[in-house]
Simulated assay, not measured.
Amino acid sequence: MKIAVLYGGTSGEREVSLSTGKGIIKALENKGHDVTAIDFSPEKLVEILELDVDLVFIGLHGKFGEDGKIQGLLDMLGIPYVGSGVLASALAMDKAKSKQIFSLNGLYTAQSEVYDVADSRQVDRVEEEIKKSFDLPFVIKPNQEGSTLGLTIVKEKEEIRQGIEKAAKSDSMILVEDYVQGKEVTVPVMGYKGKEQALPVIEIIPKNDYYDFDSKYKPGGSEHIVPAKVDVQLTAQLQQDAVLAHQLLGCDVYSRVDFIINEKQEPMILEVNTLPGMTPTSLFPDSAQEIGLSYDDLIQKFVELSHKD
């Protein structure tokens, strides 16, 4: 097939996307596809408008890639692509909206509140509201951003202001939520719509205090245990919840669902990643490996799942 791979992009996750893109390109070439590689930028949309390919494989992360915008453009051009469509992408990227959907459908989520910080003059008021509404420790992060960029775990009240300002650099809306102590796990999901299956659960042991950017992407930044050391019943619950979350948002082909298992051994959903990392150190390929699916075979499987006819 003639496949264009969009990677790079302009978000804070550009470096990760460059690595993801290289992996996808190599895998597709190994499988015999004719690959066009595009380091995507909104300023160079003509490259997309002039595409003559059978399929687009989106290897972008963050804004203008994972949020439904590029998907909308490809829809208008009538070019099929791998992964979730406009609405599912936008919902998954909007943490507050997706948490509402999860909560309404019986999935456990941390108590949270969203605040508009577009007007810097409102920061004082927002800071006071957060102080009244949340007990330490809690998390402040951009409502729409990935890879834990702009995230602060607030342990002292003096850190609130700084946390707001840091998150506000990435988004005009910030999300504040209770900090949940526990085991971090993630569950890859893949399959045709309505027939999705969860892959083995992965336990993440970060070298830092939490699973931050360095833990995710630097070699040796975290340890991945596949399958996770959780009992059979909890494993089944995590996999069931992951597939449900994927379906509730209307995701397509693949996603990765992040959880924290709290002290009561309850899986609390954090978010759904519609374009999870596909770098050499990424979680999804690690899980696929456990069921005998090599990196190249995994990428090929996504291509096959993208055929809607």
Rank of each mutant, 00 (worst) to 15 (best):
E203V: 06
Y254Q: 05
L249I: 13
L249Q: 07
Q237Y: 11
I225N: 11
P200L: 07
E223D: 13
A228I: 08
L248T: 06
R256V: 04
A245G: 03
T235W: 02
Y254P: 00
L199P: 02
H246P: 04
V253T: 14
L249F: 11
G250I: 09
E196N: 01
L244G: 00
K218S: 15
Y217N: 10
L234R: 06
I204C: 00
S215R: 04
Y210D: 02
S222V: 07
V230T: 08
F213D: 05
V232G: 02
Q233M: 13
P227H: 05
S255F: 04
Y254L: 08
Q233C: 11
G220M: 11
V232Y: 10
E196P: 00
K193Y: 12
L249G: 07
D231G: 04
Y211L: 06
D231I: 00
Y211P: 01
Q247Y: 05
T235L: 03
G220S: 11
D241Y: 15
V257L: 04
Y254S: 04
E196R: 00
E196Y: 00
D212C: 10
V243W: 03
E203Q: 13
F213C: 09
I225C: 04
D212A: 10
A228R: 08
A245D: 00
L238D: 01
Y192H: 15
I205S: 09
I205K: 12
P206A: 06
G221R: 07
A236R: 14
A198G: 09
V243C: 05
C251K: 08
Q237G: 06
F213L: 12
Y254W: 12
P206R: 03
L238G: 05
G194L: 04
H224M: 14
S222W: 04
D209Y: 13
P200E: 05
A228G: 09
K216S: 08
V253A: 09
Y192E: 14
P227T: 05
K218E: 15
Q197P: 06
L199R: 00
K207T: 13
Y217M: 08
I202R: 00
I205W: 02
V226E: 07
L238N: 04
G220F: 10
Y217V: 10
V253E: 08
G194W: 02
D231V: 05
K193D: 03
P206V: 07
V257W: 01
K216P: 09
V253Y: 07
I225G: 05
E223R: 13
V243Y: 07
E196F: 00
G221D: 08
K218M: 15
K193V: 12
D212L: 10
P219E: 15
C251E: 04
F213A: 10
D214I: 09
V243T: 09
L248G: 03
E203L: 01
S222N: 11
V201G: 01
K229M: 07
S255W: 03
I204A: 00
A236H: 14
P219K: 14
H246W: 03
Q237W: 09
D252S: 13
A236C: 11
D231F: 04
